[in-house]
Computed example of a mutant assay.
Amino acid sequence: MQLMATLRTSVNIAVATALLGMSSLASAERIEESPSAGAMVADAVIARPLYFVLSQAGALIYGATLPFTLLGGNADQAAETLVVTPLQAAFVRCLGCGKIENEVGSLNEGDGKRIRHFVMLSGGAAQLDTDGETGNGATYGLYLGTHFELTDKSRFDVMLGAKRLAETEIKASTGTFKDSATSYQIVSRFGREVFGNVDLMFKLGAHHWSAERKLNTGSKGDTSGNDFLWGVGLDTGLGDKLRVGLDYTSYSMENNDDGYDADIDTLDLNVSYLF
């Protein structure tokens, strides 16, 4: 699928540029600070990477405890403390500044922020690249998460999900085989409303994957591992309860012990119900 290969190349560049630009977006907020050059360098080299690592570690804890925090009624507080607060410090802050104009912890719900939970269905097309060969297939998944909307137009999602990544037939020089893969994911998304009711969202996360390969001889083998995913997409609202979006996501799957190395790119349509 030439479209997926082109998307991967162009999105790699776009995501890197956009992530660096998030601080510039934040500088439009009225932060009354004049940081020194040293503060800017320390922020860029030390503070922001640390806050980013904290946000991703927090996402893992949030995902692992989500069933219990939902039952306990404090999933939104867990998401805010563990994930959204360090994400704001990492991206939604002018370089070298110590303050955030719309810090999520200082806002009251209904007065500066809105928090809702959501269920999301996802489906689309996937391209799997393994051993220098590629194949195409369908992908679908189900997610549960928490959505934050702030008055500065920044948006944050934290979600836990399962996804059937692909079931593809690949014709290699050594013969035909079928690869299938399943992914269990913990994902954080962050971005801003860019125009109208459309949000530009960046996605980062970790996933546990399992893959199975069936050879044309009838034999098969399976493998699994833990790896990373990233992506970018657009979301918009359809009324108060529904949101739809289009996402590009890149998944890494590598197990050195089994010699398995694959990348999967997906283009998905998402439909979310917020409650």
Rank of each mutant, 00 (worst) to 15 (best):
N74T: 11
F202A: 12
A14D: 05
E109F: 01
N255I: 05
L269H: 02
F148S: 07
E167L: 08
K203G: 04
V158I: 14
D111P: 02
K99Y: 06
G112P: 10
G239H: 06
G105N: 13
G233L: 03
E169K: 15
A44H: 00
M1G: 13
T85E: 14
S272Y: 01
G205R: 03
K178Y: 03
G141A: 07
E169L: 12
S252V: 02
Y248G: 07
L200Y: 01
D247P: 01
L71G: 09
K113S: 09
F91L: 10
T9R: 15
N256T: 14
I115N: 07
R114Y: 05
A78C: 02
S36D: 06
D222W: 00
R192L: 07
E167Q: 14
A79F: 08
E29M: 09
I31K: 06
T134H: 07
H208V: 11
D261W: 00
R48L: 07
E149N: 13
G245T: 02
V119L: 12
D227K: 11
Y184V: 03
T9S: 15
S106Y: 00
L267C: 05
R192F: 10
K241E: 09
A162S: 11
L3Y: 09
L20S: 12
F91P: 04
D247A: 05
D76Y: 00
G205A: 10
M253K: 04
L95Y: 04
K241T: 13
W209M: 08
D157P: 01
D157H: 11
G124N: 05
N102E: 12
N197A: 13
A14T: 13
K203I: 09
G191R: 05
D247W: 04
S250D: 06
T81R: 14
N270M: 04
I46C: 08
L142D: 01
V45E: 09
D199N: 14
Q88T: 08
V84D: 12
R48T: 10
R189M: 08
M22W: 02
L82N: 08
L25K: 10
Y251L: 04
L60W: 04
G233E: 03
A125C: 01
E167I: 04
L142Q: 03
D111I: 09
V84L: 11
A5K: 15
T174H: 08
S224K: 13
S252E: 10
A44F: 03
Y143C: 02
L70S: 09
Y248C: 06
F52A: 15
S173W: 01
G123E: 03
S55H: 05
S183K: 03
E167S: 15
V41L: 14
A90T: 08
R116E: 13
R116V: 08
A18L: 13
D261M: 00
L87T: 14
A78N: 08
M40N: 06
G145C: 06
N270E: 02
N197I: 07
D265F: 01
G237L: 02
S122H: 02
V92F: 11
A42Q: 09
D258H: 02
G175T: 10
